[in-house]
C-alpha cells in the first residue's frame, strides 16, 4: 500500500503523521484522504504540489501511485 506522510502543518488536520492507502492514482489518493479526514478542507492538499517517490509534481491529477510509493504534500513553488 502507498504510504502518505503528512507535514506538521497537515498533521493539524490528520492528527497522525503516516497512513497507508491502497490507491493507484493521485486522484484516488486525494479521495481516500478526504474520506478519512472529512473535517480537512480539500484545498489543504489539492492546492499543494505532491512528491511521489521523490518526483515532485506541481499540479497533479491523474498521476500514478505505485503500491509501494511514498507520498508527501508540499507547498507549490514558484521562482525567480
Amino acid at each position: 500500500m502507498a504510504v502518505v506522510i503528512f507535514s506538521s502543518e497537515l498533521q493539524k488536520f490528520t492528527g497522525e503523521e503516516r497512513i497507508e492507502l491502497a490507491v493507484s492514482t493521485y486522484r484516488n489518493l486525494v479521495d481516500g484522504i478526504l474520506n478519512r479526514y472529512p473535517d480537512m478542507p480539500a484545498k489543504e492538499i489539492t492546492e499543494k504540489a505532491v512528491s511521489i517517490d521523490g518526483m515532485i509534481i506541481q499540479d497533479p491529477l491523474l498521476d500514478p501511485v505505485a503500491p509501494d510509493s511514498e507520498v508527501h504534500f508540499l507547498d507549490r513553488i514558484s521562482g525567480g
Partner: peptide, 10 residues
Amino acid sequence: TQALYGPKFN
C-alpha cells in the same frame, strides 16, 4: 536524505 519539507532526495 529526507528533506525537512518532506520528500527524500533522489
